[in-house]
Amino acid sequence: MSTSTLSTRHVIARIGAGVLGGYAFVWGFIALGLAGFYAVGLPFHDAEALSNILGFLLFLVVFLWAFAASNLKRVWMILVGGGLLMTGIGALIQQSLL
C-alpha cells in the first residue's frame, strides 16, 4: 500500500480519530451504559460487565469506521461529541441515583 497519496498530517489525524476519538466515544458509552443499566434495575456489576463487553465491540466498529469514512471531520465530531454527550448523560443519571 503506498502512502504517497496521503499526507502525514492526514494519517495522524486518522489514527488520532480511531484511537483517541474511539476511546472517548467508548468511555461515554460505558459510563452511560453503567449508569443506565443500573438505573433500569440491573445489578451494579452486571451493568458494568455488560457495558464493558458491548463497549469493546463498539470500539472495534468505530475504530474501523474512523479509517473507512470519507469525511474525517465528521468522524472526529461524532466520536468526541458523542463521547462527551454520553459521558454527560451518564453523570446526570448518576447524580439522580445518589
Partner: peptide, 16 residues
C-alpha cells in the same frame, strides 16, 4: 476492562 476503562473507579466512583 477495569484497567482500560476504569469508569467505575473514576467517574462513577460515587455510584460504585
Amino acid at each position: 476492562a477495569g484497567i482500560y476503562f476504569p469508569v467505575s473507579h473514576t467517574q462513577m466512583k460515587p455510584l460504585h
